[in-house]
């Protein structure tokens, strides 16, 4: 037992890549941030270097030791020092992870899946407008991508429009980041479903932010993450405004188990979302699959 534990803790750098796909690598919680009443961000550090290389939009399988394992997207950008995940407490495993304290150990398997393609766009700084639409915790898988994009705008890339919808004002995550992105040139618009007396901003669906946001729909791309119905409505509204469906990326969630395309739990039509997703273009097949009822 103890030698197994040593193996998990001290893989050789060469063995690390293949090992990390199937065997959790132990990480220590080095910071814990309460974002809202039910969303917590954990900053993780491997017990042994090196740190993980990943792309924005990918996910890890995080294990709460003795409880279980769940898929959680990275909420940090690859260039940031610390690997972060932002977790909403919805059930047994997410609850255990949200309850962890600084110093606790968490298992990490990954990185898995496709990404928001900000890295490929960065080679030849993308001149198009980028419209980022997030609902609730959906801003977490987009946070790293926005960080990268904001760096790009400062190098002459296209404009960034960040549209965020939340149930109520207290559920808006990453407030400090939203302020910082605004200060660095991004246009940030927020809306809530239920206003409180202190809220003096917009009230309504996130799609109501699209019309007067100011982007050029015919020369832009979009990244959407949030409840699936919200993404469907937003994608349709963007297409109605003239955006090319191939340029609209959505991040889809299904039950993930193996993360490597073996078990089939994450199937959506012919796609295995742990491998072909979670980030996929909202064009053709995906838009059809999302309107079909799953059996």
């Amino acid at each position: 037992m103890s030698s197994d534990r040593t193996l998990l803790m001290r893989p050789s750098p060469a063995a690390r890549e293949s090992l990390s796909a199937l065997t959790p690598i132990l990480h220590r919680v080095v910071e814990r941030i309460g974002e809202t009443n039910d969303i917590t961000t954990l900053a993780l550090e491997p017990l042994e270097p090196p740190s993980m290389n990943f792309r924005c939009g990918q996910f890890n399988m995080l294990s709460a030791l003795g409880v279980g394992e769940i898929a959680i997207s990275m909420s940090s950008a690859p260039h940031e020092r610390m690997l972060r995940h932002s977790i909403r407490d919805v059930g047994a495993v997410s609850h255990a992870l949200c309850q962890s304290s600084v110093g606790d150990l968490v298992g990490v398997r990954g990185p898995f899946g496709s990404d928001w393609r900000v890295e490929s766009a960065r080679g030849d700084v993308d001149q198009r407008d980028t419209v980022v639409v997030a609902g609730g915790i959906g801003l977490a898988p987009l946070r790293g991508a926005v960080e990268e994009l904001v760096r790009d705008t400062q190098r002459g890339g296209g404009r960034i429009f960040i549209l965020v919808g939340a149930r109520e004002p207290s559920q808006i995550v990453f407030r400090a980041d939203l302020e910082s992105w605004k200060a660095r040139g991004a246009k940030v618009s927020l809306t809530v479903d239920l206003a409180t007396s202190e809220w003096d901003g917009r009230v309504g669906l996130v799609t109501t932010l699209l019309a007067d946001a100011g982007f050029d729909a015919t020369n832009s791309r979009a990244m959407l993450c949030g409840p699936e119905v919200m993404m469907r409505f937003t994608a349709r509204a963007l297409i109605d405004l003239g955006m090319d469906p191939e340029g609209i990326l959505v991040s889809l969630e299904r039950n993930m188990q193996c993360g490597v395309g073996w078990c089939g739990h994450c199937q959506l039509g012919p796609l295995l979302l742990c491998r072909d997703g979670p980030v996929v273009p909202y064009a053709g097949l995906v838009s059809q699959l999302l309107t079909q009822r799953e059996r």
Binding site: D38, V90, G91, G135, G136, I137, G165, A166, R167, Q171, D193, G204, L205, T207, T208, G226, P227, V229, M230, F233
Partner: peptide, 15 residues
């Protein structure tokens, strides 16, 4: 339609 969507309480806790 927008009101119906909001009634769905998409961001709510549905556990």
């Amino acid at each position: 339609q927008a009101t119906r969507m909001r009634l769905l309480d998409l961001y709510g806790d549905h556990r």
